[in-house]
Design a protein around this nucleic acid. Sequence first.
DNA 1: CACCGTAGTTAGAAGCTCTAACTTCTGTGA
DNA 2: TCACAGAAGTTAGAGCTTCTAACTACGGTG
Lengths: 211, 211
Amino acid sequence: MTEPAGNPRERYRAQVRDEVKRHAWGQIATAGVTALSLNAIAKEMGMSGPALYRYFAGRDELITALIRDAYRSLADTVRAAHAAGTTAVALAAVIREWALSDPQRYLLIYGTPVPGYHAPDDVTAISDEILTVLLEVCAGEPDEQPKTPFDVVLGMSRGWADALPASSPTVHRALAFWTRLQGVLSLELAGHLTPLGFDPGLLLAEEVAGL
Amino acid sequence: MTEPAGNPRERYRAQVRDEVKRHAWGQIATAGVTALSLNAIAKEMGMSGPALYRYFAGRDELITALIRDAYRSLADTVRAAHAAGTTAVALAAVIREWALSDPQRYLLIYGTPVPGYHAPDDVTAISDEILTVLLEVCAGEPDEQPKTPFDVVLGMSRGWADALPASSPTVHRALAFWTRLQGVLSLELAGHLTPLGFDPGLLLAEEVAGL
DNA sequence: CACCGTAGTTAGAAGCTCTAACTTCTGTGA
DNA sequence: TCACAGAAGTTAGAGCTTCTAACTACGGTG
């Protein structure tokens, strides 16, 4: 993205790291994360295996970098849509397009997690960023009162949204938006909706419209 | 489950296959599918690597068998609940409990798919079985009329539900039930809801109740 | 009782991640 | 301009994986 400090060594380093990641995305798109091979990437780049360890401490660090980039891309997409003054329905469509444009990128974030894995703080920060935008898109009247039992629970302890100026119905709407979206997307991208023969985009639109 | 034909050779075979699968589930539960190792299973069972190839053609066939068992288990759970006359809300809770009792088993079915993979016919049949029960649980008046634009689309070509006697609002309800459930579950099991600090079961109940 | 097929063995090819030791190149300071 | 420190890349190899091939040993059936 931005040019790193003038140091030419550093620039070259960043360039190679980017090229490694490009090849990695290529492999992931065609065969999934499990098939990601440092060796194969090195071969594609015309250098021999262990050379890549100058740039990434190991396979896990490369994957973490890819996850970070995926989150960053989604967060930027969501922010851009919000800045352009989107509705919830339109935002859902935008996120769906983002996911469909590279399913494995979506699945890297929201697919099966590795049991032991804990995302580093800067990654969870991007995740929070996304949820915060969601909250703003779903905001209603500032002094909205709780309407359902779950609203009341959210009002008592809203966890992550404690610091944010959002009524509990707003938080509820944002959560429902998020889970309904993920429901359609995760099933669609895993291919579980294909045999049912309808357009998931239509279902998604109505699911989100009904908030 | 059922005793296979008396042939003692066959019985022994089935027994060993089951033991292999038990060890496989153990590994999957603690480290995920990617960590599943035929070699390690063989070692645990006190025999040497290639011996397992008498029982499973390879890693992929073992995983397929596990996926089949997982589907079977979910289908049985859903059928049992339906037979006991469950409501949609209660069914959602039952499925959630099933998923929470072994997250990796759920994720094996609904998590990140391997790009090239196509499930064998008998597995997709079980998947259909589950959806059919869902349709019955979500059934309303038989002569219900379409209520939303998506209902109309479903009425024109309902794909898989063509042969089934369900009104399009019923199909719509079943699909919404399914996607909302998957939305909460996939986020919860992947740990994306944990930092938000609320009980996903409550959200799920209200999401499903609102159908 | 002999035999055929199955269950298991070891050896080994090809691939992976990752470490260690070595060489070669290059940007920088004297 | 030259010397040198450190970065980039190399090969070798340990230890893991899946999976094939060839061989031995056992056990149910004719």
